[in-house]
Design a protein around this nucleic acid. Sequence first.
DNA 1: GTCTATACGGGGATAGAC
DNA 2: GTCTATCCCCGTATAGAC
Lengths: 209, 209
Amino acid sequence: MPENKGFEKGKGTKRKIEDAAMELFAEYGYKGTSVRKIAAKVGIRESALYNHFKNKEAIFIAITERAFNTPFSQDMSAESIQASAKKGKAFLQKYVTEFKLMSFDRNSEKLFRFLMIELMQNPLLREGFEKRFRDINVKFLSSVFFAMMQEGLIRSDDPMVMADAFMGQLFYIRLNISLLKADSRSTAPYSTAFEKALDFFWRGIALER
Amino acid sequence: MPENKGFEKGKGTKRKIEDAAMELFAEYGYKGTSVRKIAAKVGIRESALYNHFKNKEAIFIAITERAFNTPFSQDMSAESIQASAKKGKAFLQKYVTEFKLMSFDRNSEKLFRFLMIELMQNPLLREGFEKRFRDINVKFLSSVFFAMMQEGLIRSDDPMVMADAFMGQLFYIRLNISLLKADSRSTAPYSTAFEKALDFFWRGIALER
DNA sequence: GTCTATACGGGGATAGAC
DNA sequence: GTCTATCCCCGTATAGAC
């Protein structure tokens, strides 16, 4: 009874299928990826694949879950926001570093491309993205910026606009890195881009100068 | 002899094919769009379509040309850069306005989604994008920023970082608008987003305060 | 759980009549 | 230039043996 083992081999296969599918989706998109190719990449037949997933869409869903379950771990409590704000630039630094790590991590990179491709085509993915990533991050960030203003650390301005400007910079850098990586080109020009962007941003809002 | 008329009807059909294809590509991606559907949208048979384009890819190419031939009209001469720089915020305002118009224009909007989808999957498109859009815009923008610094209009900083930060903000807003439009949702929250982003950005770099 | 074999629909493309 | 008819490949999915 293979399905009752503590570490069954089936789990390994299921995981392998997800990994293979993610790579292919990131490369060719959902429609451009055939079940045959996924199976071939795993090293099994298509029919065997249907023992692990009901159909192609089920594989897609499994991967979207992965994409959303690796966001920034956000503690949205008032205390956490206050504590973050008090750190000033150091908080943003930490945020940027997390973002940077994700940008250069090979697996997250695949997820990013997958997300960008499908975001433009899949309404469900857009909904999940907005609720489980964008809303949370922008709300958290703008709350922190607002708190920083009250602390007198940064100049007074619209916190939402500030948060969007901050995210926009990071996102744009990440996109450019992604495009370079897609062609297996060097990302050296961007090795310090995140830090530079943060420094520039902070100089634009900091009060102690 | 229909192909020799000054305003031949064939041109109309060819154009119609491109338009229909662009809408479908923006909605379903290249692979997700069948020649049959394009033909159906135009109101002709697939076979008739092959009188205008060699194959499906030729339609794709025609559309990418469109996407690249509608960038910002850039005069990269030294005089133009100096003149632009002297205008200060007014220059950026004009730039932002152009960007905004494109974001809310229905046709440009389709092109944008098309571009985002295919950029992640098509090496040729990436190359074209980098050479014919990104390089030109970032170079022009950073040159203008550099000139502005020399004019004493803005604080001194890395012009490239500044240009990327500026573009990043605009791009991020545009992306969010695009996602809303994809679901036919109201873009009201973004009606003044570009202006607000510019004001915020300018406050962060302007020297007269 | 994996295999072989197969059904079935859709997609790209062409031939030839009008 | 457009049509009908057709070819062949590829993609998803299932049945049934091992």
